[in-house]
Write a protein that binds this DNA or RNA. Structure first.
Lengths: 128, 128
DNA sequence: TGAATTTTGTTACTTTATAAAATAACAAAT
DNA sequence: ATTTGTTATTTTATAAAGTAACAAAATTCA
């Protein structure tokens, strides 16, 4: 990996981290355009791909958006709990699920390489 | 719900069921256009929304595509195992995960209303 | 039958994502 | 020091996915 790439990734992660709610790739792009007017979508997508590979950011598949990782980056199974009312996302460690999940998959001889667990619902603040 | 809507939904579900791999909304649309040339994207999306609400079909959030439900429609937590090699999707009942998942969520007083569990990896056939 | 309701098709558009072509960066060889 | 080959990056353009708005057609049921 080249230096330039790492810098881009840090920039993107910084933008994501400052925001406490998930951002779409294009929201990140718009933000970055303020200081780097010529930046284009694929640049952001490339940085995001690297960050999510490394576990430094997560993609919310059900929302087409991204959050900075707030937990241990090595968490094999991040659980992303999305509040449908206020939009905030909590991250939990899903390691306790791993054995159960593996057992279920193994029953059909399926070998998982990536786990996606997302919860939609209401966070503590938004519960009546 | 009116009869007309149910018919559309059945048509869409039939197309999905005949296919053993996930389909995008536009793939469904193309297929249906052969017999109903005037059908348009919003109609398909509307039917898919109803079907997924009812649990008769599932959306693969990580793939922007859809599969017919092959299990019990009332399965509260469907686990969708996606083979990244051949593209087939297995559906498993994730009920055993439910208590663990609820416990983890409850630690931050999060109340889940919808669970998304997707596994990417290799199916039995595609494993070396 | 006919008024109320639902569903559909149409158009136009937004958002998300990627392909393809052009360019820049840099290390190794000349 | 200059050229070359390789790889990564940017730019441009476009594909793909999804939705909003609204009028017209079909359906329901009084």
């Amino acid at each position: 990996m080249r230096k330039q790439a790492q810098i881009r990734q840090s920039e993107v992660l910084k933008v994501l981290s400052k925001h406490d709610k998930p951002m779409t790739a294009y929201a990140i792009l718009d933000k970055m355009k303020r200081t780097e007017p010529d930046i284009a979508a694929p640049t952001v997508y490339r940085a995001l791909a690297a960050l999510t590979d490394q576990g430094r950011a997560h993609k919310l598949e059900s929302m087409k958006s991204f959050v900075a990782c707030r937990c241990d980056h090595s968490a094999a199974v991040p659980i992303l709990a999305i509040c449908d009312d206020c939009g905030t996302v909590e991250e939990h460690d899903g390691t306790p699920l791993l054995s159960e999940l593996t057992t279920i998959a193994a029953q059909s001889k399926f070998t998982p390489s990536r786990h996606i667990v997302e919860l939609h619902g209401q966070c503590a603040r938004c519960t009546d």
